[in-house]
Amino acid sequence: MELTTVWFLLVAVLFTGYFVLEGFDFGVGMLLPVLGRDDRERRVLINTIGPVWDGNEVWLITAGGAMFAAFPEWYATLFSGFYLPLLLILLALIARGVAFEYRHKRPEAWWKRRWDTAIFLGSLVPAVLWGVAFANILRGVPLSADHEYVGGLLDLLNPYALLGGATTGALFLTHGAVFVALKTVGDIRHRARALAVRAGAGAGVLAVAFLAWTLSIRSSAAAVALAAVAALALLAAVSAARVRREGWAFTGTAVAVALTVATLFTALYPNLLPSTADPAGTLTAANAASTGYTLKIMTWVAVVFTPIVLAYQGWTYWVFRRRIGVAHIPRH
């Protein structure tokens, strides 16, 4: 296997890990005003992701770094052409991170409400815009022969991309609801599980429509198979939630998110960013890659450090594996 293919797969794996892990973070944040009926319940929701949310974001940083080093032309074109959506995602993530840290600094209700709003919006905006961005990557955008983006903002807000945003938003909401049901006890757990069943049904409709449209644009036998299994995994997750098997339900939503992302990358390859204006402007794994020596050095670094990072993050989830509830939250 060529190193360009290896690094395409590694970038795909990093983004898949990011969406699976950060996906339930986004879902919990979006559910904060829905499931949190009072301050103590909202603190329970925040505490379910408190120990892991910042570690989950490391996957995005690593994926961006891998893109920059392995496919610099892809990175440059993507971050210049998608500048405004990616800036909005960055600002939302900053506001969300600050809100987690500052929410408890003062006791006033108005202070907490403002930071709760920041958590909600800081979760909703990336959840939707990531779907918009990746739908445009697969569909293609207007690029010149020298790989410069020549479109405008409205080119990115096409119906297919908006459906992609709605799909990721719904999937992450379902993923988050199942995670809350898995991590809590008492009334919050029951409400989260019931919400997961309803949200999962809506997410399933959107996901099927989006994946079907995706396969009509770019398709392969592998992409079709992955899309079919993703749909079945989401159906299994909703069924498991209905019978109060939160562990299996969370496994199902995680697999559904992972295979949805895998479907997009599989359908995209060997392209990295198709051009809808000039075919010569299409970025591929071959013409956007770094030198062979650079990829070789990066491969050895990844071989050494990837197991360390995975072991550390797995240990973190194991340490904070227990359920929590309102009884664990002090009144003041």
Rank of each mutant, 00 (worst) to 15 (best):
R42V: 08
G164W: 04
I324E: 03
L163Q: 09
V208S: 07
V304A: 08
P85L: 02
R323E: 03
R321H: 08
G164Q: 12
E2V: 05
V303W: 12
K183L: 13
L87W: 05
I217Y: 07
H147F: 15
D278K: 06
A221Y: 11
V257M: 04
A258E: 01
G292T: 07
V224S: 08
W59T: 01
V52F: 10
Y317M: 10
V34D: 04
P72T: 05
A95R: 08
P107Q: 14
F71M: 03
F68Y: 14
T299W: 12
A212D: 10
G252C: 00
G200V: 00
A212T: 14
I119V: 15
V205N: 06
P307T: 09
R218W: 03
L32R: 08
A236G: 13
W111Y: 15
A241N: 13
V205S: 02
N271A: 15
D39H: 14
W7L: 11
D54N: 09
S80M: 09
L10V: 12
V141D: 12
F250R: 01
I329N: 02
T4Q: 14
F71D: 04
D155L: 00
Y18D: 02
S220G: 15
V303R: 06
A63G: 02
V44Y: 00
T167L: 04
A256V: 01
K112P: 00
V205K: 10
G122F: 05
F26L: 13
N158F: 13
H328M: 11
D278Y: 03
L206I: 10
V243P: 00
L273M: 11
S219W: 01
A256Q: 04
E108D: 14
T16A: 10
L234H: 11
T174N: 05
S123V: 12
A92S: 14
A177D: 07
A203V: 02
P51D: 13
G122A: 05
L21S: 13
W248Q: 04
T263A: 11
A170Q: 02
I61T: 09
E101C: 11
H328I: 02
A221T: 13
Y83F: 13
L272Q: 02
I188P: 01
T174I: 11
A231D: 10
V28T: 08
N47D: 12
A311P: 00
G17H: 08
S275P: 07
W53A: 01
P33N: 07
A236V: 14
L14G: 03
A258N: 09
D278P: 04
I137H: 07
A135T: 14
P330F: 06
E41D: 07
I308D: 05
Y75Q: 11
A289C: 09
G292F: 03
R321I: 08
L226V: 06
L154D: 15
R37P: 00
F250K: 03
D54K: 07
L157K: 07
T291L: 12
L14F: 10
T284Y: 00
R218T: 04
A194V: 00
R40Q: 08
N47V: 01
I89G: 09
E101V: 13
G50D: 10
G122Y: 13
F71A: 03
